[in-house]
Amino acid sequence: MRRYFLKKISIYLLTFWVAVTIDWGIPRLMPGNPLQVFLLKFRAQPDAAKYLQAYFYKAFGFNEPLWKQYLYYWDGIFHWNLGVSMFYYPTPVATVIGQHIFYTMGLLVPAIICAYFVGNRLGAMAARRKVLDNSILPASYLISGTPYQWFAMLLAFFLGALWHLLPESNAFAFGTTPVWTWTFIGNFLEHWILPFLSLFFIMLGGWAIGMRNLIIYELESDYAHWLQMLGSPARLVRRYAYRNAVLPQLTGLALALGTFVAGQIVTEIVFNYQGVGLLFFNAITNSDIFLMQGAFLLVIIGVLVANFVIDIVYVLVDPRTRVSMMGAEG
């Protein structure tokens, strides 16, 4: 058990190191002056531009040798000091991300959890009856092939632009300040529904297919046949099959995180939803390398933490591991 987690954690740490290094390296190793766009904002005369360039080059630490910049970067990560955003200048990147993370988490986590449970249930239902199998399964395949942004556009078009039922952009209305009041919460929820639905719906399909296939496989296995021969009620057999199938589905959850990140980013773009995905996109289009690094770092940390949580859940839920743990301790 310990060996397993040690191995896991060391792989995560290695991944973190690789990702951070790439994150740090790409903007710096690319040709061109990272401050060019930022300096252009100051509309300075040529001499003044030179002066500002020198000033900011130092202020952003580009005058240091690369290895030092790299070490400083790591030092910054440990102190959660991710530099100053150019796009939000002079707000620190950590503050900017702090302002946006709630919106991303508030969408992504409920969408993943709901889709996971509902999808698994749907899959289990499909495995039960031929009629359901013939409807849920094809639908699930289509849903799995649907681009997130397209479904988001469908919702925005029909429920927003055409019928004016729900707001089709922003996370809350103009003129409201994001603080904990009922007005704000109501406003937030109203803007939350469409992006949530679009994420939730697309995420459903995969789980349903996976669960349906796993259950059918389980029902074909020896123990199921055996149980049936012993005269166990079909419901009981199915329940066992479902439980056994949830395990691999959980691993599937870890593996799907990367695609969920992609879905989240394009969905936030469609609904102009002020989460980290939109922030990441803005950082890239505005060449704000510090914000981009910070947002990417956050994505990496999120994915790694989620992987780790799923690992723990897996071990907790899997009876065999529980036994082996007890065995190891006893």
Partner: peptide, 23 residues
Amino acid sequence: GSDPPPVLAHGTAPDPDGMAAQP
């Protein structure tokens, strides 16, 4: 030592969101 828990006797196909899970 490979990725999914070694105890996974069923060894089933952890796959992206269960897509085409083919155990």
